[in-house]
Design a binder for these strands. Structure first.
Length: 111
DNA sequence: TGATTGACCAACT
DNA sequence: CAGTTGGCCAATC
């Protein structure tokens, strides 16, 4: 099969690999893909992923500040925070506490 | 089909 | 210190 994964498809591959109880950032995924500037695309891809049949933990992806940027896209803004807290991640004021502690870098897959 | 937007990030002014 | 701009790729108008 000819694999020609677009930026878009790679995002899903990485997003599915995010371990439970961990979070990552749009920029980290984009950087892993080799295109740091496409961080916006990652978020946008997540938005579409909500409509996809595949289970993609979009709630484990936040922005560089650890803020739940896309909480509004889950239908109800509370869902994203509840999911994160359900995995043991502390979220206060739509922001992840000790982000570096829960942060998971997709680049770990390379080594 | 050209222009605009988008769950971002970093650098520059 | 805060606002603006450039960058990236794909989808929508």
């Amino acid at each position: 099969m000819s694999n020609d994964p677009s930026f878009f498809e790679k995002v899903y591959q990485v997003a599915k690999l995010i371990p439970r109880g961990k979070v990552t950032t749009y920029g980290a995924i984009a950087e892993y893909l080799g295109t740091k500037g496409s961080a916006r695309m990652v978020g946008w891809a997540m938005n579409k992923s909500l409509s996809f049949p595949e289970e993609i933990p979009a709630h484990r992806v936040v922005n560089r500040n650890g803020i739940l940027s896309g909480k509004q896209h889950f239908g109800n803004p509370n869902i994203m925070q509840q999911l994160l807290e359900n995995e043991g991640i502390k979220v206060i004021d739509d922001k992840i506490i000790d982000l570096e502690k829960y942060f998971w870098n997709p680049t770990s897959l390379l080594k």
